[in-house]
Design a protein around this nucleic acid. Structure first.
Lengths: 239, 239
DNA sequence: TTAACAGGTCAACGGTGTTGTCGTAAGGTG
DNA sequence: CACCTTACGACAACACCGTTGACCTGTTAA
């Protein structure tokens, strides 16, 4: 064994597989993403990926040390796709709101990949770029370093967490999804006022609000708390 | 095969296993939780659970249709435990903060179960009780119905989403988890100021903040935004 | 006392990630 | 152009996983 994985830059001898495919890190990641989107996250396995590529499963270990490494590469590609679209305007609150919504939308667009990749620190190029950019937005808005880091962390994790949560439920099998809304309508909408006064009183609002994602509301609350903190900081600076 | 799973209420003929253990749904759930707590989330498998119980793995299929069912039963038990511990004091903000932290901690203690249970509406007793209780806290604090529902939704989803996010990372094999912090130390801590000024300037804060969960910070921001909204509502009511 | 059947056991199927070994074709070198 | 090195694809094997159909046996109701 010793070291099976060769750094991408040093690769040169690309021998085609028995089925004539020339492997590469990019091809593997792209194929993995396609596999996930077409057949669901649980359809991603080393063996299936090998089959989809027309290569022996063990060949992939020449490119990734283990499945984990592959996941990180997939995650980073997703971050990159989101970041490439985003254009900051200089208004920190609007910019972060826009970026948050884009990250959330990106997760929803790739539900099955989002579930896999959201909770990992990749340490790869796109992730680093994202960290630098968001920290820059906050620091240039006037947040002290400690606050900038704290808010950055909460902002990023919240986008990722809601992205995963919401995409997990959209990725449910159709039968299960219909069962979910049926539960709301059948169970919650008709709870008696005597035993469940608060649910009964707000049933109309619950029916309207629950099927939607609460991420925009949560994002706005986070940003408004951050804005309040910034105002407080400025006030103190003037005194 | 036909139907292997008999409703719990109808069970009566409890034959001991070869090793003398009398199985039951409660015993299986309890043993599964113990297994997760003692040997980590990845130690939970049907076969290991069978071994821990002193029973053949396939016996469990007399009680749960598949592993998912078992996970949901575990999740339900977790909701129950969290709710049973929580004692509201009447201070809405402190109560919600406490409940949020407890839900998060409960998810962290049982990562595998948390991931499964977070995006499913069970409509079961404990879940309904939680909805009623939280809505009650908000409405009695003075939030109008529409705001109460909006804040309830954001609050619950935030706890669940962060619970899933954070428990997913604690469910990682220990090698991968150590790799995460190593990435922060090796990659982010030594990015040059020239190319990544904001990361370089805040490196010290990043090292301290990133390994921790950002949920408490996010929760506090949500609650503080809610408090600001409540103040606004009261002001308007006085005018 | 006995017959029914719930429920524990066994064996097997097809899947998974991962690794040690080996053959071979591609590349650089002379 | 021919040689040597070696990257890297292929193969086979290992230990695990969830799940199921067939079988057998102890418990219980009649």
């Amino acid at each position: 064994m010793s070291e099976r994985v060769v750094p991408p830059t040093a690769r040169q001898r690309r021998r085609p597989t028995k089925q004539g495919v020339v492997l590469s890190e990019e091809l593997i990641v792209a194929t993995a993403l396609r596999l996930i989107e077409e057949h669901g996250a649980e359809a991603l396995s080393v063996r299936r990926l090998g089959r989809a590529l027309g290569a022996d499963p063990s060949s992939l270990y020449r490119y990734f040390r283990h499945t984990d490494d592959l996941m990180l590469a997939i995650a980073d590609e997703l971050i990159g796709r989101t970041l490439r679209i985003w254009r900051p305007t200089g208004d920190w609150r609007a910019d972060l709101r826009d970026l948050g919504l884009r990250m959330h939308a990106g997760a929803l667009a790739h539900p099955r990949a989002a579930v896999l990749s959201s909770y990992r620190v990749t340490g790869r190029a796109y992730e680093i770029q994202a960290v630098e950019t968001i920290l820059g937005v906050l620091r240039e808005a006037g947040f002290p370093d400690a606050d900038a880091v704290r808010i950055y962390h909460a902002f990023v994790d919240q986008s990722l967490a809601f992205g995963t949560l919401d995409s997990a439920s959209t990725a449910l099998p159709k039968a299960a999804r219909e069962a979910e809304t049926a539960v709301w309508r059948a169970t919650y909408a008709r709870l008696p006022r005597a035993t469940h006064p608060h649910i009964a009183a707000t049933a109309r609002h619950l029916m309207a609000d629950m099927p939607r994602s609460s991420y925009p509301a949560a994002l706005d609350m986070l940003l408004s708390a951050a804005a309040a903190r910034l105002a407080e900081i400025r006030e103190r600076a003037e005194a």
